[in-house]
Nucleic acid binder design. Sequence first.
DNA 1: CTGAAAGCGCTTACAG
DNA 2: CTGAAAGCGCTTACAG
Lengths: 334, 334
Amino acid sequence: MKTKITLKELSKLLNVSVSTVSKALNDSPEISPKTADRVKELAALHNYRPNPVAVNLKKNKTGTIGVVIPNISNTFFAGVLSGMEAEAQKNNLQVITYISNESLDREKQICDLLTSGFVDGVLIAVSEETQRKQEYDHLFSLVDYEIPLVIYDRINIDIPADKVGVNDERSFYDATKFFKSKGCKRIGLASAIHHVGVGKLRMKGYQDGMAPDEMFTATSTNMDDLKTKIYKLITENDLEALLCTDFMSSILASRIAYEHNLKVPEDLKIIGYISSEIAEYLSPSISYIEQHAAEIGAKATELLSERIEGHKNSSEFSEVIVKTTMMHLESTTF
Amino acid sequence: MKTKITLKELSKLLNVSVSTVSKALNDSPEISPKTADRVKELAALHNYRPNPVAVNLKKNKTGTIGVVIPNISNTFFAGVLSGMEAEAQKNNLQVITYISNESLDREKQICDLLTSGFVDGVLIAVSEETQRKQEYDHLFSLVDYEIPLVIYDRINIDIPADKVGVNDERSFYDATKFFKSKGCKRIGLASAIHHVGVGKLRMKGYQDGMAPDEMFTATSTNMDDLKTKIYKLITENDLEALLCTDFMSSILASRIAYEHNLKVPEDLKIIGYISSEIAEYLSPSISYIEQHAAEIGAKATELLSERIEGHKNSSEFSEVIVKTTMMHLESTTF
DNA sequence: CTGAAAGCGCTTACAG
DNA sequence: CTGAAAGCGCTTACAG
């Protein structure tokens, strides 16, 4: 790599000291306007830019934040990253990306890196495995090192940190009420994530919207099994509407309609939890709950940036809920 | 942030010099085994890890690579990033992610950052706008700064750099020949990217596979317009098979079949250029050309890493083509 | 207003 | 085998 011009070289060319050059470029009031101009002119001429590594060493920081993502092929997380990157640029922070692939082991490795001084702060959504096993020691080690930390999306974890997520319970309550307001009586729920935190919250929202004796649910973590159960649920109860808590159940609902020639929305209305990218392109398109991924990412980054700047009380943590939006496509046309 | 233990503090505790501690931890043969053990023991006890910023300043590097991605919501690029991250970890490089959002201006800003010393090397797929306007000055400035550079995916650019991409022409030639081998005569092509590099290459592949007088093509950059054209193309020529060069045309083909009750694959076979995530979940599922995104990302990172290490001749550049695979789903069942 | 000096946390050529 | 010194490229308290 070409060696860039340094302060020292600049100072030699200008016949002033390194300190003077540094102060001039940093707009210090100590320096005379005349000198400042001379310095800046030559710096511009040589396209001088301070070596960020040196500046960071001096200031005892890294200028970077670490983002841990469970699965980047999930467009929700891709959107989150996009929001983070945009907000980070505004705060002059570089985003270092780590992908855990939903693996606890990988997540531990990453946290080990994170505590060794590569970043000024961390944004993390824990992996599925971590959630299931509820093993959070590696996250507490971030806390021990006093690395500013914001947890996003999967936020039902008992860790002292800022959190940014969505109101999962409310979104399903609202969706249920939406169907009721349209006169639907037999409303079912399908879930492949009934065993994890967010899944439980979404189911709770549905339950709160329904009378106890009028609920219809199909749950399984096995794709084929769930498919059979959903089909049975629909046909045996002559469902008018179906809520799906996750990607797999949403896709299965779409698939079942296609294979069994169920008319959607005529015979069955569907609301899924699925990315717009996919929901829009299914035939028929499936109405979905939009999570505003980029906004979640931006908000999380904003909170982290404030922590890094030290603007916030170190023992008080905020929990920000970014509201979801119901997006109506063909599957909920009345 | 908690202050981590430093070499100096360690040396004080051990009553040896900083140099000795440093050498001991770096397994220098200069140090006696006895001292080395003492040092390592205490370092382990305090969980000492060298400050990467200081190490990097000393070694005149950053330990990071910059990845520029046009659009992270495109699952192809998400997969590429995933491959890059995995390969970067192997080489002890941190990945700093920049998202250009297909914008030339943003790309210029990013390149400006990139030349100011944040990274040791750059992986870039240029934005659509950049490609269209063929404005590459900002990329040449990376070259001027002698920053190791690898261009991935959108590689038909005349810049002295390593490149990693796919054989677009060949993939469409093969797909065309596949249909022919199955006895199809009336094979059409739909494209929304006929005006850009890769689009032209894919069309070329199709043309080479067909006789000049038996080609059927529908092209437009406007969604509605393209939809009309594709439908006409299919019905007026009674097409047996359709190749789609890109996401939009693939989705439109799927949509047209749904709306007009065309039986796929009975009445029409389709091969699309679309991510597996979407192709698999359409009903019927659409056969597609798989680009092996993660492999492209890994290979690009490997090349970059070699450049950074200086293992390669600085005036010779490699161009790696990662072969595509035809993935057969329901839309090409014969 | 300018500059010499110290120092951020390391590594490494050199001396002993 | 160990350590003092120089230095990576900066910033900043201090002296003049």
